[in-house]
């Protein structure tokens, strides 16, 4: 009763606020909905003015062209292979070194940690030219190795994992050691299961980063059979297919939609992970 009388004068304010949020939501999600809607329009309808909000005619022709004529299956496969390899490798290596830095003593530990922290903020823009020279001299240009290996050494992942491992109780590790478990057994049977939330957060962020990565794949790969999806789309959209908008938004949909679906499924995890780690 009391709440009802209290909320009545607030109602116009609540309405106004929710209308404002709704406008924001339309602006935020609208372009993505428009992308999907436009991708199933025939090329003629796409150039129609004014545009149709709901397609008059639904066609898959843009997708069949992408997948039957433009090697998008190949690019998709490349993106999946690279993102999975980078995710599994960098999460595992980060967890291992993070554990060593948090819980074990070894010579060179302080130096290693200082170097990791020192490179935490070094952007890819600063290292891609020398990295290209290095990778060229290792004869790795146009290989999956070139797309994967540099991202297995991720300072941010190490930082995140070390922070998390610091909170793993020492008693748990000591108990395992007393029971005669070796260091590696302790790590894989005790530490990794404990770290599952951190592993999931880092895994999701790493996968996203790799899937959307553009500059390095653009530089490291020159033959089309190793293109990842963003590289292929960027080159098509600035090359021969500049004005084929139906085809281009279908290509964009192929990149964005799988990630959006994964995001919707895991959104609680992702959003919590972002706000607790405070980094992407």
């Amino acid at each position: 009763m009391a709440t009802a009388t209290r909320s009545r004068p607030l109602a116009p304010r609540a309405l106004l606020l929710n209308v404002a949020l709704l406008v924001g939501l339309v602006a935020s999600v609208g372009p993505l909905v428009w992308m999907v809607v436009s991708s199933v329009k025939p090329e003629g309808e796409i150039r129609q003015f004014p545009p149709t909000l709901i397609p008059d005619e639904v066609t898959w022709s843009n997708y069949t062209e992408l997948f039957a004529q433009l090697s998008f299956p190949r690019y998709f496969l490349n993106s999946v292979v690279v993102a999975l390899a980078v995710t599994v490798g960098s999460v595992l290596f980060s967890a291992m070194v993070g554990y060593a830095l948090a819980k074990l003593d070894f010579p060179g530990k302080r130096t290693l940690f200082a170097l990791v922290m020192g490179t935490l903020m070094v952007p890819g823009m600063v290292t891609f030219v020398p990295l290209f020279v290095l990778v060229a001299n290792l004869d790795l240009i146009n290989t999956y190795a070139a797309l994967i290996l540099p991202f297995l050494a991720a300072p941010f992942g190490v930082f995140l994992m070390r922070q998390f491992m610091l909170d793993v109780p020492d008693e748990l590790l000591d108990a395992a050691r007393v029971d005669g478990a070796g260091e590696f057994r302790t790590f894989f049977r005790i530490v990794l299961p404990q770290a599952r939330p951190a592993l999931a957060t880092l895994g999701i962020l790493t996968f996203l980063g790799s899937w959307n990565n553009f500059l390095w794949p653009l530089v490291a790969v020159q033959s089309a059979d190793k293109y990842t999806l963003p590289v292929a789309l960027a080159l098509y959209s600035t090359g021969q297919n500049t004005v084929q908008y139906g085809l281009l938004v279908a290509g964009a949909t192929v990149i964005v939609l799988p990630i959006l679906v994964v995001f919707l499924v895991l959104q609680r995890h992702i959003v919590q992970g972002i706000s607790t780690t405070g980094l992407k």
């Binding site: 372009p31 428009w34 992308m35 436009s38 959307n212 963003p230 281009l248 964005v256 990630i259 995001f263």
Partner: peptide, 28 residues
């Protein structure tokens, strides 16, 4: 709202740049 506002963050910049080029196309 929270999920909707966050959705663009997970997208590939290349992909959404293509989409925005289409949104901003002057004639249609």
């Amino acid at each position: 709202f929270r999920v909707g506002f966050y959705a663009p963050v997970v997208t590939s910049i290349v992909a959404v740049a293509v989409v925005w080029r289409f949104l901003l196309q002057p004639d249609f």
